[in-house]
Computed example of a mutant assay.
Amino acid sequence: MTLKPAPAGVWFITSAHSPARFPAAHGCGADVALVDLEDSVPAAVGAQARQDAAAFFIAPAAAPVLGFRISSPTTRDGIRDLAAVADYPVRPDIVLIPKTESPRDIEITAGVLDAPGYTPHLYGLIETPRALEDLPSIVRAPRIAGVLFGTADYATATGCTATWDALLYARSTLVTSAAAAGIHAIDSPFFDLQNHEGLRREAERARDLGYAGKCCVHPRQLPAVTAVFTPTDAEVAAGRAIVSAAQEAGDRIVKVAGQMVGPPMVKAARALLSRAEDRTQHEVTA
C-alpha cells in the first residue's frame, strides 16, 4: 500500500467510540485526522470501538492523511489495538503511540505493524517526565517520524498547572530534541473550547517556538489553527524576495528590505515557501 506523506499543520482527533462522526473528520479540512482508541473510549466499549475504527480508514480519496491513536503498546489494550490494526483491510498512514517513554515503545509498534509494502509513520506522544528525560534516544528511534506533546498528562504527572509558562520548559525541550533529530514536533490540543483567543495565542506561540503544527479536538478550532500555521501572502512575498535576492547574489550575504540576509535566513525562507506550497496543494485536493 502507498502511504500518504506525514504532514505538519493541523491535526484533528475524533473518538473511535463515535463512528457517526467519521465522515465529518474526513471532510474537516485538517492535514491529519486521527481516530482515537485511548482516552476518549470508555473501557466497557473498547472492543466495539476497536471494531468500528476499521471503517475510519475506508475514506474518500480526498480525505486527509489518516491516523490512529492506539493505547500504550505496553498495556493489554494496546496489544489488542495493534493486533486489530494489523488485520484492518485498510490500515492507517500514521500511528500515534501514547505514553511513549523509550525507543522500545516505537520498536514494539513497528514490530507488530510493519509488513511488506506497509511501514506506517510512527509518532511518539510525549506526555510524562520520564519521556522528557529520555528524549534524545526516543527521537532517534529508527522508525520514528515525529513527536506530539501531551500537555494534560504531563501537567498531571508533574503537578504543574496546564498553562503556557508552566509547560514552556517541556515544550522547548521537546521541539529542540525533535529539530536535532530532523523530525516534526506537533503541539498539544487546547482544551478550552470557548476560549478562541486563547487558542489562537497558544497556536501562535507554538508556531513561533518551532512546532510544525497543532492538534484540535473540536471542528470549531480548525479555522484558527489553520490560519496560524498557514503562511500569509506577505510572508510568502517576503520569502520569495529573500530567495530571489540570494540567488542573484550567488548565495552571498545580501540586503533585502533593509535587513542583512545570510544563509540561515535563506534556508528559513525556503522552508516557509515549501510550507505554503504544501498548504496550497492540500487545499486543492481537499
Rank of each mutant, 00 (worst) to 15 (best):
Q51I: 08
L273S: 10
I106G: 05
G29P: 02
A152P: 07
C216I: 00
R130I: 09
G146A: 05
R69P: 01
V217Q: 09
L135V: 00
P231C: 08
V284E: 14
V256K: 10
I253G: 15
A268K: 09
T230E: 14
A84Q: 10
T100C: 08
H196C: 06
A110F: 10
A185K: 05
A203E: 08
V225Y: 04
G78H: 07
H184E: 09
S177V: 00
A53I: 00
A162S: 11
D278L: 12
V41E: 10
G150S: 04
I79G: 05
A8Q: 15
I97L: 02
E107M: 06
A241N: 15
A62D: 12
D233K: 14
R275A: 09
A47F: 02
E197A: 14
H282S: 10
V35K: 01
A49G: 09
T163Y: 05
V65T: 14
D251T: 05
A246R: 14
A224R: 08
W11A: 02
H282C: 05
K4S: 06
I97P: 03
P223I: 01
P136G: 07
C215T: 15
D105F: 06
V175K: 07
A49L: 11
G250E: 07
L113Q: 02
A110H: 15
D52Q: 11
I79K: 09
S274C: 08
V228F: 08
Q221T: 00
I144R: 05
G150A: 11
G250H: 10
F68E: 10
A157D: 07
T280M: 13
A245L: 14
D208W: 03
S188W: 13
